[in-house]
Design a protein around this nucleic acid. Structure first.
Lengths: 114, 114
DNA sequence: TCCACATTTCTATATTTATAGAAATATGGA
DNA sequence: TCCATATTTCTATAAATATAGAAATGTGGA
């Protein structure tokens, strides 16, 4: 993960609605949630939610796939791990640091994660 | 760590100079670096560097202490850990997740970390 | 084909953030 | 006390971002 992407990822997360949406997706797991459900959960107009989801996607933090009329978003766990790794890099000059974390869920029934 | 602080921390890191400065501080360890050295390392005017450092401090990501004429900044490792923990919270619905990382350096000679 | 639904793209406006020079503040030494 | 250094605060300007209505797009059912 390079600097520019990291900046975009951090900027994407540094906004109330996007942070909330991302966390909902993180907690939802690989199955994800449709845009409308996110908009409703956060009480944000559809067009605004779309704007925010586009930024999360642009930063590589979420993926999207169409499921019938809905567009379902899922958190990209690898991207999240990469972001953390970048922030921790060479922590304390490389001494006594915990290795970068990762969250790799066992894919249960949602194998079609785009 | 609560939502508002997390937003501020993410926003603080989502800027080239601040991300670079923070990473320099992370790598510098508890000893930290004076504002001037950071400004020089990043080729940024002193007033701009000061502006950016103030935001990192406001987000709780760095601490500052005066050392003679210089003001020395250090990364706050606990804050960084807290930020990561927040992002990972309830990852995958709480299943099969790595515990939140932390970087707790063994304080060598810099015991005066404000 | 026509219509309802889910979402996005377009648009304009309001708000926030970055930038860096100049002036102000604090520290230490001559 | 006076001066040089290190940094911050003040200021104005430039640039990026958030907001949400309205219109456009894609999907599926009657």
């Amino acid at each position: 993960m390079q600097s520019d992407l990291v900046i975009r990822a951090l900027a994407a997360l540094a906004q109330v609605h996007r942070l909330a949406a991302f966390r909902l997706l993180v907690q939802a797991g690989p199955e994800g949630m449709p845009a409308g459900a996110l908009a409703q959960a956060l009480a944000v107009p559809a067009s605004s939610m779309s704007f925010h989801l586009a930024q999360l996607a642009n930063a590589g933090l979420v993926t999207q796939r169409r499921h019938s009329r809905s567009i379902v978003y899922s958190a990209d766990y690898a991207a999240m791990g990469g972001l953390m790794a970048y922030l921790m890099e060479n922590c304390c000059g490389g001494e006594a640091c915990v290795p970068a974390p990762s969250c790799t869920p066992q894919i249960s029934e949602a194998k079609d994660v785009a």
